[in-house]
Design a protein around this nucleic acid. Structure first.
Length: 426
RNA sequence: GGAGAGGUGGCAGAGUGGUAAUGCAACAGCCUGCUAAGCUGUCAACGAGCAAUCGUUGCCUGGGUUCGAGUCCCAGUCUCUCCGCCA
């Protein structure tokens, strides 16, 4: 969430920049500024009354000690009056603080200057393009048919066990999946990310801190009995490792990578684009997370983009990079680059990665700070990105690498799979 | 699931009703051939002020008792230990 002091000091530019999201937040901003003024004046009055109360208490203590009970009792009556009025002021203070928080939850992050205006994904700015659509051989079939042909993934079996969107990977399908995970992890480790295996279940506080709650409550699986949530992305547990922490300047850069399954309810997205691996309730993902000094967080963002590019280059997949427009930008992000691979049998671009800078939007809720050179506590910038999400990579690999001879495995993966072709039905 | 113990600053750790010791780390200044040590201050949030500074809050959370609560009472929550069950 945005910092109230920042809003107060830069309201004009914040209102202006938020317009890129195609929504006017002017009213909310002014409302929150007014509430903040109310809050401050209530606190000022309260502070003064409490100061007086403290003085009186001190005096009463001294009077009792020296045996002047009568005078003490007279003062006591005075404190009773003051106490009543502090109670109302305190209530005012708490009320205004709560209202401020409620409004702040409704205000998304301020888009970076680079974010283009636009309404939907159609207005995203293509930064880097593969150039041409890959050609395929004549008998190309979509990945769900390939998966069936070679018995790599069984979607119906998953329906039996759980429900739709929970596929079962089998034989070489499972091995290829595991190979990709290991490949992604090793590449990240080679780039100095430290691997973590976090919990797959998080509490309410963690959900709030990274911004999934209260915004996307319905997107997460919730275990009511224990009030815990299945993670929709490793971003949640990995970023929350650093909740309530104070870093030092020379702790930067903090780089973490983790592989986890991700669970998403995807409520309301039935019917469209859900065939095969395109949209699942459970999927695997390798996530990279960085904590950065505010001064160079955008250089770090570029570094993370470069990392993802390299992965796709090595996998020899046709891809493009797009900069999300205001209408498509996530609630908590200031700037996001999406990576899309071309799925040639479906003739579609599929999103496989999303790399974002959240600036202080998450760290404000996380209370994630560092002690800067002036010995002041300052909020850290948080960034994360998928590197990469597995299912659509798998889909693209199967579709793009098919030929009469079967599915060929990219060179970099062969040491991980132990086979270079899939051409039999096990 | 049963029983017990506990939650204090960045960290460690005292504090049985009078307004958060002490140590370590960090930052600034002083001192000193250099380094180390030493001394002083700062070192959580919020508010008032141009500022020096001042005030308030802060001891897991929320209530309560009291002129005054880290300390007493009630409820909740989390952690640890032991027992039970179990990969």
């Amino acid at each position: 969430m945005l910092e109230i002091n920042n809003i107060r000091e830069n309201k004009e530019s914040i209102i202006g920049q938020l317009k890129i999201r195609n929504k006017d937040f002017e009213k909310l901003i002014f409302e929150v500024i007014n509430l903040d003024e109310l809050r401050r004046s209530a606190q000022f009055k309260l502070d003064n009354e409490l100061a007086e109360l403290n003085q009186l208490s001190k005096k009463i203590g001294e009077l009792f000690k020296t045996g002047q009970h009568q005078q003490a009792n007279e003062l006591k009556q005075k404190t009773a009056l003051l106490k009543d009025s502090t109670k109302t002021l305190k209530q005012q203070l708490v009320d205004s603080e709560n209202s401020i928080k409620e409004i702040l939850y409704q205000i998304p992050n301020v888009p970076n200057k680079l974010v283009p205006s636009g309404n939907s994904e159609n207005d995203n700015e293509v930064i880097e393009n593969y150039g041409h659509t890959p050609q395929l051989f004549a008998g190309a079939i979509p990945h769900w048919e390939i998966a069936k042909k070679y018995n790599l993934i069984d979607f119906e079996l998953g329906v039996k066990i759980t429900g739709s969107g929970f596929p079962v990977y089998i034989g070489k399908g499972a091995q290829l999946q595991r190979a990709l995970i290991n490949f992604f992890l090793n590449e990240a480790i080679a780039s100095n990310y430290k691997e973590v295996i976090p919990p797959l279940v998080v509490n309410e506080e963690s959900g709030f801190a990274t911004g999934q709650l209260p915004d996307k409550e319905g997107q997460m699986y919730h275990m009511q009995e224990d009030n815990l949530y299945l993670i929709p992305t490793a971003e949640v547990p990995i970023t929350n490792i650093f909740r309530n922490t104070l870093l030092k300047e020379d702790d930067f850069p903090v780089k973490r990578v983790g592989y986890t399954p991700c669970f998403r309810r995807e409520a309301g997205s039935y019917g469209k684009d859900v065939r095969g691996l395109n949209r699942l309730h459970q999927f695997d993902k390798v996530e990279i997370v960085q904590l950065a000094h505010p001064e160079n967080s955008y250089a770090i963002l570029d570094e993370m983009v470069a990392h993802v590019k390299l992965l796709l280059d090595k996998l020899e997949l046709p891809y493009r990079v797009v900069r999300l427009c205001g209408g498509d930008l996530g609630f908590t992000a200031a700037l996001t680059y999406d990576f899309e691979v071309y799925s040639s049998a479906q003739q579609k671009w599929l999103e496989v990665s999303s790399v974002s800078n959240f600036e202080t939007y998450q760290s404000n809720r996380l209370k994630l700070r560092f002690k800067n050179n002036n010995n002041k506590n300052q909020l850290v910038h948080t960034l994360n990105g998928s590197a990469l999400a597995l299912p659509r990579i798998m889909a693209a690999l199967l579709e793009n690498n098919q030929s009469e001879k079967g599915i060929s495995i990219p060179k970099v993966l062969i040491p991980y799979t132990g086979f270079d072709t899939i051409n039999d039905k096990e």
